[in-house]
Nucleic acid binder design. Structure first.
Length: 594
RNA sequence: GUCUCCGUAGCUCAGCCGGAUAGAGCACCAGAUUCCUAAUCUGGGGGCCGUGGGUUCGAAUCCCGCCGGGGACACCA
């Protein structure tokens, strides 16, 4: 059952069309919309029904709108209707329709806004998937917050959601990690090698020189003594130490990442290991399947246009026919050394998700992976075949961090690299999460540390939290006056005294929450929640401030217990919707701000 | 060179699978202050929605070209 009053009225309108013009095709019915009006003079909601349908009936839109209006006027939920502009049908709902939103909220509490839109379709949201080669930094943070909020949003919209993290533990980066960790081990047991001497012996030179690997070296030294090195404490044959060091480094890196995720309040239903998939033969099996479908061949790619990579040379490769599924070029599955490309493993991984029942896969990636979207979607399309499964990709743009008006440089070399943990310590989990959702994910963001912790209206986190705290403050004050503030009781309140425009505006906003959840979920845009809450908070603060000049708008009316109950019902419902929204964002509401 | 994202008020940004007079905060201007939380509030000015075409009842929104900015472009993940 939906609480979305716009959906309910849309059904009234569609029913009216079916009654008047039963031959109207489904395709036109689907285009009928009932949406909130911007201007209250246009009613509570407006429909494009006549503009969409009248053409097929060879009627003027205004004429058809009038016919629909006549049917709607017989509906007790409809107060009145008007035909306006080019043929909009404006609907003034009976006041009880709007007021009925409050007991709905009070009965459902934070669950209000939940939708059946998703129809329990299985959705897999994959995000973060940071390489286990170091601590999480700010770039990962945005993806983590966006992915987590999006997953919560999809769940709220009625999808059956799995939150998933892919551990990229199979590629060359993990080899480099092992070599780097081994250096820290040699240091821990007191090698005479210098870092540069060691690096010269590492294939490709040593990467990952950050100090965060020192504890890995110490752990290895503690567990294995000098048994992983030669007697002279120089690097031994990798066959002696490699597996041990890699396992230790991976496990400690993942532990650190999970700790960071805990601090951020991000929890996954499942961690998948790329290495496990490969060892299981998933990649080979997927390539076989694609081969059987005739989608694999050996060929040579054209060199990329523009600036040519220095070491480019024509080379025959195993290619996937991505161009058959909308990609620009076919894509390689094997590296020149014969091992699988990351793309090949990722295809297998997405096949695995589909095999586990995912109908909608959503991957949250950094924008630097944007060029990878169409090939992954092509592969998904190829493997999905007749099933409806498909892949959506949400890209997260760069986050620039500002402090004191200055850009904080993100350079590993300069040592000004901001980890997620640093940011959380400085700003706090809730402000980090909320602020990360104050921009569309595919737009670049300046994260202003000063603003994120400021206690002014400019800071949406504060403004929304403050609205909630004020609601709770009123409810506490009411309880002290022996007023029953339980939701069960308030849901029974007589609400007819609520009629000031500021009160009605607030109620209308609350009524829009279920619709917002559905639309944000369809658009895969969790940032809309943050904007909604900011506007909701604005409506509430506005009503509060009106109470300064007009004492009849204050929530606690000593002389009017019935009016007080109605107002408190509104306050309690407002707090519930704020909590409902914050829960999707993964932000904790505050009870009091003093 | 190709692909992709972005371009909306002085600034930072919403709105974008077509809807009516394009919104918010900051800044600016003018007022308010014995009050459930002044951690301010109310009101006002401010816009060829980058640009030129197209699609149609209707375009900030969809399509094409151009201008300007970010990002990505075999064998990394």
């Amino acid at each position: 059952m939906s609480n979305n009053i716009y959906t309910i009225f849309r059904n009234y309108v569609v029913d009216a069309v079916k009654q008047i013009a039963p031959q109207t095709p489904q395709s036109l019915l689907a285009k009928i919309d009932v949406s909130p009006t911007k201007d209250p003079a246009h009613g509570d909601m407006a429909s494009n029904v006549a503009l969409v349908v009248s053409g097929s009936l060879k009627l003027a839109p205004k004429v058809f709108a009038a016919q629909i209006a006549e049917v709607l006027n017989a509906n007790p939920a409809v107060l009145s209707t008007a035909v306006a502009g080019p043929g909009f049908l404006n609907i003034f709902a009976h006041k009880s329709v709007l007021l009925a939103v409050l007991p709905d909220i009070l009965r459902e509490h934070e669950a209000y806004g939940a939708s059946t839109l998703g129809n329990r379709v299985v959705v897999n949201v994959e995000y973060v998937s940071a390489n286990p080669t170091g601590p999480m930094h700010i770039g990962h943070c945005r993806g983590a917050v966006v992915g987590d909020a999006l997953a919560n949003l999809m769940a709220k919209a009625g999808y059956s959601v799995t939150k998933e993290y892919l551990i990229n533990d199979a590629g060359g980066q993990v080899i480099a990690l092992a070599w780097a960790a081994y250096w820290r081990y040699l240091e821990a047991i007191g090698t005479s090698l210098t870092e540069e001497e060691y690096s010269a012996r590492v294939p490709g030179g040593m990467q990952y020189r950050g100090e965060y690997l020192i504890p890995v070296g110490e752990k290895l030294a503690a567990d294995h003594g000098q048994s992983l090195a030669t007697a002279t404490k120089e690097n031994a044959d990798p066959s002696i130490w490699f597996e041990t060091v890699r396992e230790c480094a991976l496990s400690m890196m993942m532990t650190g990442i999970r700790e960071d995720l805990d601090l951020l309040g991000v929890y996954f239903d499942r961690f998948s290991s790329e290495r496990d998939l490969v060892l299981k033969g998933a990649t080979d099996a997927t390539i076989e399947k694609l081969t059987a479908m005739g989608l694999i061949y050996n060929g040579t790619l054209e060199p990329p246009k523009g600036k040519l990579p220095d070491d480019w040379e024509p080379r025959e490769q195993m290619l996937f026919r991505a161009t058959q599924f909308g990609d620009d070029v076919d894509r390689p599955l094997r590296k020149s050394d014969g091992s699988n490309t990351y793309f090949a493993n990722d295809i297998a991984y997405h096949a695995d998700k589909m095999a586990r029942g995912a109908e909608i896969m959503i991957d949250v990636w950094g924008a630097d992976h944007g060029g990878y979207v169409s090939r992954m979607q092509a592969a998904t399309k190829a493997l999905a075949g007749e099933s409806k499964a498909h892949l959506d990709v949400v890209l997260c743009q760069i986050v620039k961090v500002l402090k004191g008006g200055e850009l904080v440089r993100m350079s590993k070399r300069a040592g000004t690299f901001i980890t997620l943990r640093d940011l959380l310590e400085e700003v706090g989990r809730d402000a980090v999460r909320f602020t990360m959702l104050t921009r569309k994910s595919d737009a670049q963001m300046d994260f202003d540390i000063d603003q994120a912790i400021a206690q002014t209206r400019e800071n949406p986190v504060f403004y929304v939290q403050y609205a909630h705290a004020r609601c709770r403050s009123v409810l506490r004050a009411a309880a002290e006056q022996q007023i029953d503030t339980s939701a069960e009781s308030l849901a029974q309140a007589d609400l007819s005294s609520l009629e000031n425009e500021a009160e009605i505006a607030l109620i209308r906003r609350l009524a829009g929450w279920p619709r917002l959840v559905e639309q944000a979920a369809l658009a895969r845009e969790p940032h809309r929640i943050a904007f909604f809450l900011y506007e909701l908070a604005g409506d509430f603060h506005m009503l509060w401030n009106r109470g300064r000049d007009d004492s009849t708008l204050r929530f606690l009316q000593a002389e009017h217990p019935a009016a007080t109950r109605a107002k408190i019902a509104l306050v309690s419902a407002t707090a519930m919707v704020i909590r409902s929204g914050l829960a999707v964002m993964g932000v904790a509401p505050v009870e009091e701000m003093r």
